[in-house]
């Protein structure tokens, strides 16, 4: 039995979370050029969006950066999570764990500033990466994503004990075969969820991208941020609606993947 005030608070909280978003979506279909004023149903802001080359370019760049960063993050973070969960004690384990956990708790402005300083110093020392742009944003996002993937993979493996892998080896599988046929399938849902998590984080990031991108590397969130600085336009509503639809799809996918894994 749930007391009435608890349920009331729950609905109030959900309304608080959802109402602004719902209104945003509804008014994306309004013809009125003033945002959040109804002027009849229209798709004009979606077609305006389709003609906005600057935003489309930023969106395309963001998608490529997010996909690249998420893929790197899965490789690096997957290895980190597996090593931390399954390798037992080894020299440097504590350091690896601390480094993988650090980006999760550091304020974004600190991470962003530190990465920019590192890229500048690297360029001065070895000439790479030359300048700041899409590549440096990708490296920054891959680093943040690695931390998240490592945590997801490590906790997934920690909740499954080693018996399965040991049984496979007792039955004659080589360590590599045991990893490929037993451990990797165990990790797969976590890797997939981690990829989507890293992808979304990258698509939502303003601060790291502001620090690590040059004039040539304007990502979608950075472009959106500078639009919002000047206030809202119905075009932003339309863009937000599309992003929401994409995010909803991604979340449904994650839910499906995680459920299948259990």
């Amino acid at each position: 039995m749930t007391p009435r005030w608890l349920r009331a608070a729950l609905w109030a909280g959900l309304a608080f979370l959802w109402l602004p978003v719902a209104l945003l979506v509804a008014y994306a279909f309004s013809a009125d050029p003033v945002p959040f004023r109804w002027g009849g149903f229209s798709l004009r802001w979606f077609s305006a969006l389709a003609g906005n080359d600057r935003l489309l370019e930023a969106a395309w760049l963001s998608l490529r950066i997010a996909a690249g960063a998420a893929t790197l993050a899965v490789l690096l973070g997957g290895a980190t999570g597996w090593v931390l969960a399954r390798h037992g004690p080894f020299a440097g384990r504590a350091a690896l764990g601390a480094l993988a956990g650090a980006p999760l708790v550091l304020p974004e402005v600190v991470t962003g500033l530190s990465l920019l300083l590192a890229f500048v110093a690297l360029e001065a020392a070895i000439g790479w990466p030359a300048g700041r742009g899409a590549l440096t944003v990708l490296l920054a996002h891959a680093t943040l994503g690695t931390a998240y993937v490592a945590v997801v993979v490590q906790s997934r493996l920690a909740s499954r004990d080693r018996d399965l892998e040991e049984a496979a080896q007792d039955l004659g599988a080589s360590p590599a075969a045991a990893f490929l046929t037993v451990t990797l399938p165990l990790m797969l849902p976590a890797l997939a969820a981690g990829w989507l998590l890293a992808f979304t984080l990258s698509l939502d990031d303003v601060v790291l991208a502001s620090f690590t991108s040059g004039p040539a590397g304007t990502t979608l969130p950075v472009a959106l941020f500078s639009m919002l600085r000047l206030g809202m336009t119905p075009e932003v509503n339309a863009l937000a609606t599309l992003l929401l639809a994409a995010a909803g799809l991604a979340l449904a996918l994650i839910g499906l993947l995680l459920r299948r894994g259990d």
Partner: peptide
Amino acid sequence: GAVLLPFWTGFLIRIGAWIGLLRDEG
């Protein structure tokens, strides 16, 4: 899921929604 979904919708969008709601003509 209903609590977590907004987290996935991008926080810039949600801030945009608040700008639209809180403006003088909002």
